[in-house]
Structures are given as structure tokens and as C-alpha cells.
Design a protein around this nucleic acid. Structure first.
Lengths: 215, 215
DNA sequence: AAATAAGATGAATCATGATTCACTACTTAA
DNA sequence: TTAAGTAGTGAATCATGATTCATCTTATTT
């Protein structure tokens, strides 16, 4: 016997693995999963194409890990907003704000996470991701209905609908800073942005409370 | 000179073209654009693979035509519902019903039209498709706001939100008869279906009117 | 029937991008 | 220093599915 894995080599290996994950993440933030080819990732990470495969069994697995970690961060942020103190309405508004601010700050990433087609494995992960949001909302609605703050309604439908609203108004094809990637005034001013989010929040609150809502 | 196109051959050519479109459509209804490869389409239409290319310059163009015609039919149906007589609320409910019934009847098609990733050309068509719905809703909202039936709100946001609600609750990953394709009780009973649509409609109406709504 | 223009065929080609692998370069333990 | 194992390299291979094209068929006119 003449060689065994040691702390030093293990650390180095882990560091490279991390570097690959970082590179993949940054490419996804820039151009979605589409533009994150294995060779591009390897190049950005400063390793050879083949090396990616000594750290991840396949591109799908790598993507899956990138997706999950990005996703976890996002859901946790929204969960924080939902689990504050205060009325259900107030917390719903906070959740919408939280999601929206983040989505508008990194539109490509938001799109990659919520809508971009990737491959069956990541698509399955996305199912869980959207479900995670829906479940946050469902619990919130349950609480509101139970306390009488909200009228009786189908929690599962309302929760899915809330996810759909945010996806479509902020991330999807109809979102304002949508597919006009190239030319023009990309980022809307902070004021416009707040107005947009206000409108969305108002819509959501009215939908679940059945009462006119101003801000 | 010894040959020129005649009525008979022209008709035959048109018929084959039609047959290819039909075949493509039926494959999309069955398995989405994903499963509609050129060779599968040709086989189903009873022609050779290469023949597809004497009727369409590329697969994208074929898909685009399939997409547009399917899409036009759907939007027209919803437009009918929107342009009925009656209150804005009633017409909104009718539109939601119309869209929902059709989406639940052909879930694969609905998914292909509203959400399935295809290629840049079709994705651009889809943009128009979603916009078409949004515009129907926007006009309806305008009318409601103008007449005082609806409170002031951002029409564009509300319209996009309505599209998002229907996409997510009926077609998207959180939709009830979702990705569980293989095993089980696919189609929900008519009663469950109506309950689902009622919930969606109620949600939509409350969102735009700000008033509790029962059915 | 013969000549000629289209149309149809489907196997071969191309394009893309993931995955492999023969080889080189390190690391470690003796 | 050397033997032995491990990691890194990137060009070659593979897989998939759209597209082409040499060849064969069919239709039309004379």
C-alpha cells in the first residue's frame, strides 16, 4: 500500500466540488440552466470537463444540487416572512413582498427556479419547490380560516393560485421585465417596483379575504 | 415542358399537408410536443420522414402552425364567454369555467399550450397566447372599473394574475391531475371537477371585486 | 410511349452537448 | 526514490433527433 486519502487531499477535493457548484450557480444566475453546459461550468470553475464527473455522477445530479440549495434559500426567506407575528393578512403581504423583491433582484435565477425547463430530475425537484411555497400558504390560510380572519375556502386551490399569481406576474412570460432581455431600460425604478408589488399583494389579499384592501 | 401542377395534384398536396398537421396535433394531444418527433409525425400521417420537409420548412414552423391553430380555437372559446351579455363578474366566471372545462378535458394539450417548453419560435407564440388571454381579461376589467362594478386596480397586474391562477391551478405542476400520469384514477369525477372550478372562480372574483363571493 | 417535372422515400448526414477513457500528473507510504 | 494509488485532462465517443439528398415513383403533356 502506498497512498491513502488524507485530510489535505480530502479538503482539496471538497473545495473543487464547491468550486464547481459555485460556477454552476453563477452561470445559472446569469443565463439559466440552458446556458450552463458542463464544459462552460468546468471552464468557469477552472477544471477540465471530465473532472466534473469525478465529483458528480451526472449533469442532472449537479443541477439537482444547485437547484435544491438555491431553492432552499428562497423558501426559507419566504417562510420567515410567513412565520412572523401578526395577522394572517399582514404575513401574506410580507410573503408576497419577500418573494417579489428577491425575484426582481435576480430575475434569471427566479425564472430558472420557478419556470425554466431543465430535465426530468430537476423538474421533479421543482415540483417540490412549488409545493413548498404552496404548503407555506396553505398553513397560513388554515390558520386564517380557523381564527375567522379568512372566509371558508379551498385551501389547496387558494394556495396554488397564490403561487400562480406570483409566478405569472413576476417571473412568467407576462411579467413586466420579461423576455425583452436585450434592448432597453431593464430594471424598473424602485418606485415602479413597489407599485407593482403593491398591486400584486392587494390582489392576493382581496382574493383570500374577500374584502377590499388598500395599502 | 411536360408537367405542370394541376388541380388534382394541388388538392392532393394540400390534403397531405393537412394530414401532417392533424398527425402532429394528435401526437401533441397525446404526449405533448416532446413526443411529437418528426419521424413519429410522419409515421402517423402515413408519409416518409423527409416528406414533412416538402410541406414545412422546419419542425419549428410545423409546430408553430399546430400551436397557433390550437391556440386560436382556445382563445376564441374564452373570448365568447367574455363577450356575453351580463355583469362583468358573471362573464369572468363564465371565462374561468370555459377555460377550466376545456383544460380538464384535454390536460396534455392544455399543458402543451400553456406551459410546455418547445423551442424559441413556439415559445414566442406562447407569449402571444398568454397575452391574448391577458388582454381579454384586461378589457373586461377595464369595463368593470369604468362602470364601477370593480374597484380601481392595476388592470395589467390583475389580468396577468388571472392567467397565472388558471395556469397553476389547472395546468401547472400543482394542478390536481398533475404529473401522476401513470398509475391511478386520472380523471376526477364531474362533481369534484365542478367543485374545483367553483373554488377557482370564487378566488378570481374575490380578487378583482374585493367582495366575498358565493356560488 | 417517351420525355420531363414534381413528389416521395428513408438511410445517411449533421449538430449539439453529455459522457467516457487512455493518458498524464500528483500524493502518499515505505 | 520508488511503487502504488488517486485525481485531472480534454479529445474522442455516444446518443438523440432534426435535416438533407441520391434515388425511385408518379403525374402530365406531347
Amino acid at each position: 500500500m502506498a497512498y491513502r486519502e488524507t485530510e489535505k487531499t480530502k479538503a482539496k477535493k471538497a473545495e473543487i466540488r464547491e468550486r464547481i457548484l459555485l460556477a454552476a450557480h453563477s452561470l445559472v444566475v446569469k443565463g439559466g440552466f440552458r446556458e450552463a453546459s458542463v464544459s462552460a461550468i468546468a471552464k468557469q470553475a477552472g477544471v477540465a470537463t471530465g473532472s466534473v464527473y469525478s465529483h458528480f455522477p451526472s449533469k442532472s445530479d449537479l443541477f439537482s444540487e444547485v437547484f435544491r440549495s438555491a431553492t432552499e434559500r428562497e423558501v426559507n426567506k419566504v417562510a420567515e416572512a410567513v412565520h412572523q407575528d401578526g395577522s394572517v393578512t399582514k404575513r401574506l403581504v410580507a410573503a408576497v413582498y419577500c418573494f417579489s423583491k428577491r425575484a426582481l433582484k435576480s430575475p434569471r435565477l427566479a425564472w430558472a427556479l420557478i419556470a425554466e425547463p431543465v430535465d426530468p430530475q430537476v423538474d421533479a425537484d421543482r415540483l417540490l419547490y412549488r409545493h413548498a411555497y404552496a404548503e407555506l400558504f396553505e398553513a397560513l390560510l388554515e390558520e386564517g380560516i380557523h381564527s375567522g380572519e379568512l372566509p371558508l375556502q379551498s385551501k389547496s386551490v387558494s394556495a396554488a393560485a397564490l403561487v400562480g399569481i406570483m409566478a405569472e406576474t413576476l417571473v412568467g412570460p407576462l411579467s413586466p421585465p420579461s423576455r425583452r432581455e436585450l434592448h432597453d431600460n431593464a430594471t424598473p425604478s424602485i418606485l415602479d417596483e413597489d407599485k407593482l408589488i403593491d398591486s400584486i399583494a392587494r390582489f392576493c389579499v382581496q382574493a383570500v379575504t374577500g374584502k377590499e384592501h388598500r395599502l
